[in-house]
Design a protein around this nucleic acid. Structure first.
Length: 486
RNA sequence: GCUGCUAUAGUGUAGUCCGGCCAAUCAUGCGGGCCUUUCACGCCCGCGACUGGGGUUCGAAUCCCCAUAGCAGCACCA
């Protein structure tokens, strides 16, 4: 199922080859369970996914929840749902908080190998020493002493902030970030929602442990991890493990939406946003609600690729991808924004038959009964126009002999309208239409649409001459739709 | 400040490793036209870039040096 889809993309946009991937790969997508996935996550998720699909292998969803401060209990499920929406070919899911004993065991081994020591120095003090390239007193402790202290960490002898496990690296390393970085710390609060613990690995340790244990062969991640990759290298070397192949893509600037989880959460709590799928947010749920297809997100992200340069995400490109997907399937309807009522003199009852899709007559058509009074967009009625063509219906002249202007039927001929260069506009029978609110990122547009739109709940339609819209809710009061894009 | 990375049109991207086939690819965007009872789709035409300066070479987007700009990291976050 995915194969055919993928080949279609692969035909046009091949990702660069990964070295050592010929016999298949094991890759992973490793988000924090702190909230729903957003476009930034989608890049990591889709890129890794694409390579697994290209070379074959396993794709691990690894939920990285080793900092209880950054865990939202609901996000475990949210992350899975969003991953599924994106169409990721996840073959297995692991959660780091389930694996604490594994990390503890490896930590003991690392200490035994002399690759780590337990440090009881004050944080600021250690920092000073680190900057001065000098060893702290703990660094010279015997392995036995370190093991003893490690046991005391585990048995609650120490409290938060009093002790940490450090990886022995190179104190003379030119980059201070490399020097004896921490691997474990104690966190007494808040409690972890998933597990009872107080000793937690830092990301650099748990990532190495899991990448090794799970057999990860290739890692594609953002360049904010370049320093971590170098740090993690020290741990691999202590254990003598094989290092995966890494690729670091550049920073992606995304304008116009909120991406910060804390900002989103705050806004939702305060009522600024309606929820995680508020269309002003950059979450995948928000995109879905607006009618962006997951394949459009995939294609847009794959087109960006794994370049190391910093880029700005292009909504235009995403919309173009989405339009390719949605245009062939979206039914067309009339939506009249900011409507004015026009009574048309001399109009006998007409029935309009408009195609549901202009390029596919087999989909059938919709019928609109005009009895003489119609709704038209206010923006189309101005003194520059003397004649209008109501699309699929007939022609009307406008006379500005008073306020409001008067409308008169002037025949059915499309050719006449063309000759007069009359604008062809959408309209609705005044007696047979429903209120419709179109929600855009800029604000709400009030109007009316065809009653048949109610049957498109959950789908993307095209409001002719307005743009694509996702039908979000229908009720006796009318229709709520989200503007997707033009 | 220290450590490192990157630099092709408005945006994204190909080409850079192994210099000539690149007066630079594709997509998107924008402008114009055709088609069309939508300002959608489709088709055609056009606009638009190798950060700057040196050097090597018969020849440089591609190699070297310098400059500039941007970014990342320097957390008991991931």
């Amino acid at each position: 199922m995915y194969a055919s889809l993928f080949e279609k993309h692969e035909h046009k946009r091949a990702l660069p080859d990964l070295e050592g991937a010929e016999n298949g790969v094991v890759m992973r997508f490793a988000p924090n369970p702190s909230g729903p996935l957003h476009i930034g996550h989608a890049r990591a998720a889709v890129l890794n996914d694409a390579y697994v699909k290209q070379y074959g292998g396993r794709y691990i969803l690894r939920i990285e929840d080793t900092d209880p401060k950054r865990v939202d209990p609901e996000a475990y499920e949210t992350v899975r749902e969003d991953s599924a929406w994106l169409g990721l070919g996840i073959t297995e899911t692991v959660t780091q908080s389930d694996r604490l004993p594994l990390y503890y065991d490896l930590c003991r081994q690392l200490i035994e190998r002399g690759g780590a020591y337990v440090c009881t120095c004050d944080n600021d003090r250690f920092r000073e020493l680190k900057m001065a390239k000098t060893a702290c007193p703990c660094r010279g402790q015997a392995v036995e002493k370190n093991l003893e202290l490690w046991e005391k960490m585990l048995d609650h002898t120490f409290r938060e902030g009093e002790v940490s496990v450090r990886v022995r690296t190179d104190l003379n390393h030119p980059d201070p970030a490399m020097r004896d970085f921490p691997a474990f710390r104690i966190l007494d609060s808040p409690p972890h929602p998933q597990v009872q613990a107080h000793v937690y690995p830092l990301m650099n340790f748990s990532v190495v442990a899991d990448d090794h244990l799970l057999g990860v062969t290739h890692v594609i991640r953002g360049k904010d991890h370049i320093a971590n990759t170098r740090r993690q290298r020290f741990i691999y070397d202590h254990f003598g493990w094989n290092v995966p192949v890494y690729r670091h893509y550049g920073r992606m600037g995304i304008e116009g939406v909120v991406l910060s989880t804390s900002q989103m959460r705050l806004g939702i709590r305060e009522g600024t946003y309606t929820g995680w799928d508020d269309i002003r947010l950059g979450t995948l749920r928000a995109l879905a609600r607006r009618g962006i297809s997951p394949d459009a997100v995939r294609n847009a992200v794959l087109a960006i690729g794994i370049g190391e340069t910093d880029i700005s995400f292009s909504w235009d490109n995403l919309y173009a991808e989405n339009r390719k997907i949605v245009d062939p399937v979206a039914n067309r309807y009339f939506f009249v924004p900011d409507p004015v009522t026009a009574q048309i003199e001399g109009a006998r009852p007409h029935t309009a038959h408009a195609l549901l899709h202009p390029n596919d007559a087999s989909r059938g058509n919709r019928t609109l009964e005009c009895t003489g009074t119609v709704l038209v967009p206010k923006s189309e009625i101005n003194r520059d126009v003397s004649m209008l063509r109501l699309k699929d219906l007939f022609n009307v002249t406008i006379a500005w002999d008073g306020t409001p202007p008067s409308f008169t039927y002037t025949g059915d001929s499309l050719a006449d309208a063309r000759a007069a260069k009359a604008p062809i506009i959408q309209w609705l029978p005044a007696q047979d239409c429903v209120p419709c609110t179109l929600l855009t990122q800029e604000g709400e547009i009030y109007g009316a649409c065809e009653p048949a739109v109610k049957q498109e709940l959950g789908k993307v339609v095209q409001f002719e001459r307005v743009g694509f819209a996702k039908i979000d809710a229908v009720s006796d009061d009318g229709v709520m739709a989200y503007f997707t894009h033009r």
